[in-house]
Nucleic acid binder design. Sequence first.
DNA 1: GCGATCAGCT
DNA 2: CACAGCTGATCGC
Length: 435
Amino acid sequence: MEKGLISVDQWTQGSQAYFLTHLHSDHTKGLTSSWTRGPLFCSRLTAKLFPLKFPGLNLSLLRVLDIGSWHSISLMSPSSGEKTVVQVMAIDAHHCPGSIMLLFRGEFGCLLYTGDFRWETDGERAKTARNTLLKALKEDAVDIIYLDNTYCNPSYDFPSREVAAQQVADIIASHPNDDIIIGIDTLGKEELLVHISRLLNIKIWVWPERLQTMHLLGFHDIFTTKTSLTRVRAVPRYSFSIDTLERLNTMRPTIGIMPSGLPWLVKPFKGKDKLFGSLLTPYNRSQKGANGGMQTDKRNDNLGSADRFHKYIYSVPYSDHSCFMEIQEFVKLVQPVKVRGIVSSSSCYVDPLYYFGRLCGANQPSRGLHNSEESKSLSKRVIAVQTNCYARSGNSTEAGRKRGRTPKVDFLGVNVSKANTLRRIRRGAKIAQSE
DNA sequence: GCGATCAGCT
DNA sequence: CACAGCTGATCGC
């Protein structure tokens, strides 16, 4: 398919229809409240959440895709000028509220763009999504799948979110006298919090803007902004640090729980002040026994940052992306002719074909373990739909100008700087007084 | 003063 | 290296 027709999670000029898989910022880069470039297709829930993130956006440009049914869109072929019809079906991606995969068919063939997705085997939603997909696939074979390959490596193995949620609940239950801080983002992990709330019969504190989101999502009794009502607080992940926990512990015993996408790969620890790498939690450590035991008994001010971290913070493998086995099952199910990854990380990228080439309809040679520049640019040029092939980290080791930093964050992690407040208001946050 | 962009950090 | 993305600073308008 030629360019100039449709774009997915990409907001540069030149397409006739734009599709958004979900409202995380790395998929909306370039999209602003002053959007006028064309109709914007998304799920009903995403449409509902839109005003929160993009206040003032012209809502008449939004087009709701109902899950599981085909929508026909009349467009114009950029080269011939003839009318052409694109059909699209949204399928629950179960990544965050409102997230969808997009199945396209048209003159260009049949394409499946997964967006970010989690393909669990159990649960009502997972089964419904599977049935929806299977039904759609009966009518068409998928030519190309654009795959969320975030954890597309056999070393990424972690349990279902249900199991991870139970681990979190167990940690909380085993600290009956502690305050609990859970790090979350602006969207996602709601099911985890609901699980905790139901199981322990406890309300959960969230910051005011997050409460608005919860209300839009239909949660009305579970969450609160009154700290006096609960010992469990969900706070912005970026406010989550050793310092925060240590400060809180000078007032009340408090533990932090990080339902994190990351560190289940235990790696050697490098650099004495870095937190990256082996994040063995107190939870894991107690099961592990040996090794670090004696250091935990040292006085706090003698601890290295790793030990300071593990003293208060538990990291739990709760992921909104599929693990390797789930990705593999998904590719087996779809049996696409071709597969391309949509996440191109700078050095960890593995061509999905390396693992799944043999599962594809046509036997494609893999381009090998690491992404050559060739494979990346190829993916960009030949890509049938203009899609967002994005990188997951803007980390650069460029020295540049170093700026000293003392974040002005109050003990609950809600920042109060003026520039920041303005930015939040522009994002649509109505600053409500919580207490 | 605002939006876009970048560096830094978790 | 990295989940997703916030914050502060800078620069051009």
